[in-house]
Amino acid sequence: MRLHVALLRGLNVGGANALPMAELRRLCEGLGWQGVQSHLASGNLIFEAEKERGTLAGALSGALAERGLDVPVLVLPPGEIRRAVTACPFAPAEPRLVHAGFLFGPESLDRPLFERFAAPGDEVAAAQGLLWLHTPGGFGRSKLAPRLEAIAGAPLTARNLSSLGKLVQMLDAREETR
């Protein structure tokens, strides 16, 4: 069995696509996934399975659709989460102020759009399937947050560095027991 990370886009955000994590874990176990662990209620999963990432993502997205939830899913190898943490181009005062957007397609960074809505100190970068956004004034207050996909030029699901760091800790603990 190979270890994977699933990032679910738009699950339990603003009351939309609501699903308790215990139910999500049971749903994944019903797909044959093993050792399913979740982090936060926003759809961060670690699990073991043999199938290819695209097949796994499609299976979970389909199972969620059967429950009436429109939730795109990215399944990534653990190395992609680690790379996202170590490749961060910014040195934030707080990890929660930097978000890594994991892209569902190739990026086409729209820097003029970023510049139009950026607050002083905001920074953006894109590389290797990731869009980085540093919002020192706070992501929730940022005018960039609702425009993130337009800036990236592709659909994405974003996680802050704090959440990614916790996923890395979970992966490390899991790999130590394998």
Rank of each mutant, 00 (worst) to 15 (best):
R111G: 02
P77L: 08
G43L: 08
I81A: 09
A57S: 11
G62S: 14
G105P: 00
G54I: 07
A65T: 02
V36E: 02
P106Y: 08
R82S: 12
P106C: 03
T135N: 13
A127I: 01
G54T: 13
H99W: 13
T86Q: 12
P77Q: 10
K51P: 00
A57Y: 12
P72Q: 04
F90C: 11
L56D: 03
E50Q: 10
P120Q: 00
Q37I: 00
T55S: 14
G68I: 04
L131M: 04
L109Y: 05
G137F: 06
V36S: 04
A91V: 10
A118F: 06
P89N: 03
P89G: 06
L69F: 10
L130N: 05
G62A: 09
A84F: 03
G121A: 15
S42G: 15
S42I: 14
E80F: 01
L113G: 03
G54S: 06
A84E: 01
S42Y: 14
R111C: 01
P78D: 05
T135A: 15
E66N: 06
L64E: 05
L130I: 14
P95N: 10
L60S: 05
E66D: 13
Q128G: 12
L133W: 04
R83C: 03
I46H: 02
P89E: 01
L45E: 11
L64F: 03
D110W: 04
V98L: 07
L40F: 11
L64D: 07
V36Q: 03
G43M: 09
E107L: 11
F90S: 12
V75E: 09
E50L: 14
A118G: 11
E115N: 05
L131G: 04
E80L: 04
A57R: 03
G79Q: 15
G54Y: 09
L60P: 09
P77H: 09
L40I: 15
Q128N: 15
S108W: 06
A59C: 09
Q128K: 12
L113F: 10
E115V: 00
F104G: 05
R53M: 11
P112K: 06
I46N: 01
R53T: 07
F47R: 04
V73F: 11
A100L: 01
A49P: 02
E48N: 00
E48R: 13
H134V: 10
F104W: 06
Q37H: 02
L133M: 14
R111N: 00
E52P: 12
N44C: 03
L60G: 08
A59V: 07
T55A: 15
H99F: 12
L133D: 01
P120I: 02
P120N: 07
L69Q: 14
W132Y: 15
P112R: 07
R82V: 01
P78Y: 01
P72N: 02
R82P: 07
A63P: 07
R53E: 15
P106D: 14
A63E: 09
R111S: 00
A93M: 05
A93P: 02
P120S: 08
L69G: 14
D122L: 11
L45V: 07
E94N: 05
V71C: 12
G121M: 03
V71H: 11
D70A: 15
L69E: 12
P89A: 07
L97T: 06
F102D: 07
